[in-house]
């Protein structure tokens, strides 16, 4: 995202190259946690929770829903942080 010349001054962890590698690593870990289900089958209690990749999909979708829900509620609930100050 930043110019490479800026990048050299930065901490190694926040350089663009490192962040790209971290994303690749994260994607690989995500893939492994789902694929490992082939070896370790889930015994669901309700049926649906034993489906392939159910926890992954459920975790992702509920979080997206919560962020969107919070965003919508925020339209009505948010006030400047000096609201109660006077």
């Amino acid at each position: 995202m930043s110019a490479p010349s800026d990048d050299r001054d930065k901490h190694w962890l926040v350089r663009a190259a490192t962040i790209r590698k971290l994303w690749i690593l994260f994607a690989a870990i995500l893939a492994v946690t789902v694929l490992v289900q082939l070896a370790v089958p889930l015994h669901g209690h309700f049926g649906i929770d034993g489906w392939f990749g159910f926890p992954a999909a459920y975790g992702f979708l509920t979080c997206v829903a919560m962020v969107v829900g919070a965003k919508i509620l925020g339209i009505f609930l948010k006030r400047k942080d000096s609201y109660y100050d006077d």
Binding site: F26, P55, G59
Partner: peptide, 9 residues
């Protein structure tokens, strides 16, 4: 799965 995909979200 649950937590890491929440992290992805």
């Amino acid at each position: 799965q649950l937590l890491l995909f929440a992290g992805l979200a």
